[in-house]
């Protein structure tokens, strides 16, 4: 008898929980924004720094799903998130052109750096162009670790190989299929070269034996864009929330916040929102 009561009590509890979380689903339409983004923005600590300011001001709450840029965009395409913040300009353009997103807003940029062992076995330190450096690495068959995960960084790396007219393959070229931090770790362990975004690098540089061996080339420019997922395609998406977040990110306040974010006393991201774009749209919407 007691067992029976216990059973039914447990069933009730679990049922009510399932229901309560089902009810919680009703809320995202208003106050919860789901954003997919690249690991670099989350793991560098930028979003943890920015989002509370936005949340406090507007009453929205932002749930961040950090994955590679490719997957982040795919989540937007599938309508599983409301807004995408990524750094893969070509793919982002396609995303908007295909009607998955309304418009790409530039938010900020940082740049990529080529990391490698201090000894620099391939001798790229003195080279001016990134493509040249890559060619040298391939030529000397120095180990190079690629993200290999279809992320923005990976796409950038492949583009550089293309510019250098080299098809990277062989024992020296390894695809990790993992996040930036992990790849920097692996490169450190294996004395390998790799391409990294500066934000992540600054966050982990104290733990890594690697050094920046090449930087500053125009080719290494790494712009971030933000896009609301199209409401035409997914009518019940939290479009207002997504637009509010975008508007805040490109607003003076948001841009100033991005500029003030520092890791190890270094600025990670340079805001570059096109102010005309933002004001043309509308002023930031607030949650009633």
């Amino acid at each position: 008898m007691k067992l029976k009561t216990l059973f039914s009590a447990l069933c009730l509890v679990s049922l009510s929980f399932v229901q309560s979380s089902a009810f919680a689903l009703e809320k995202p339409k208003n106050s919860v924004i789901k954003m997919s983004t690249t690991t670099s923005t989350e793991n560098s600590g930028l979003l943890k720094f920015l989002l509370p300011k936005f949340e406090e001001k507007t009453g929205y709450s932002v749930q961040v799903i950090a994955v590679g840029s490719g997957k982040a965009l795919k989540m937007g395409e599938d309508g599983d998130v409301d807004v995408v913040l990524s750094h893969a300009p070509a793919a982002e353009k396609e995303f908007v052109e295909k009607g998955f997103g309304d418009k790409r807003y530039p938010v900020m940029y940082n740049d990529f750096v080529v990391l490698g062992p201090e000894a620099d076995p391939a001798g790229i330190k003195e080279l001016k162009s990134t493509a040249e450096s890559f060619a040298k690495i391939a030529e000397t068959k120095s180990p190079f670790i690629s993200r290999g995960d279809d992320s923005g960084t990976h796409k950038k790396e492949l583009k550089i190989w293309e510019t250098a007219k080299i098809k990277p393959e062989g024992e020296w070229y390894r695809e990790a299929g993992d996040g930036m931090e992990k790849v920097i770790q692996m490169s450190g362990e294996l004395n390998a070269y790799t391409l990294a975004d500066r934000g992540t690098w600054l966050a982990v540089m104290n733990k890594s034996p690697l050094k920046i061996l090449h930087e500053g080339d125009k080719e290494l420019f790494n712009p971030y864009g933000i896009m609301a997922v199209s409401q035409k395609r997914y009518p019940d998406i939290n479009h207002d929330g997504a637009q509010a977040l975008i508007d805040w990110m490109v607003s003076e306040e948001g841009q100033a916040a991005i500029a003030s974010f520092k890791v190890n006393d270094m600025v990670l991201f340079t805001p570059n929102a096109d102010k005309a774009d933002a004001s043309a749209k509308e002023t930031p919407a607030k949650v009633q």
Binding site: A24, G79, D80
Partner: peptide, 20 residues
């Protein structure tokens, strides 16, 4: 559970219920 999937209407992806 993905929006494109047969149960997408439930909007459960990325929730604790989905984990459960």
């Amino acid at each position: 559970l993905s929006r494109q999937g047969p149960l997408g209407e439930w909007r459960l992806l990325f929730t604790q219920t989905a984990m459960m």
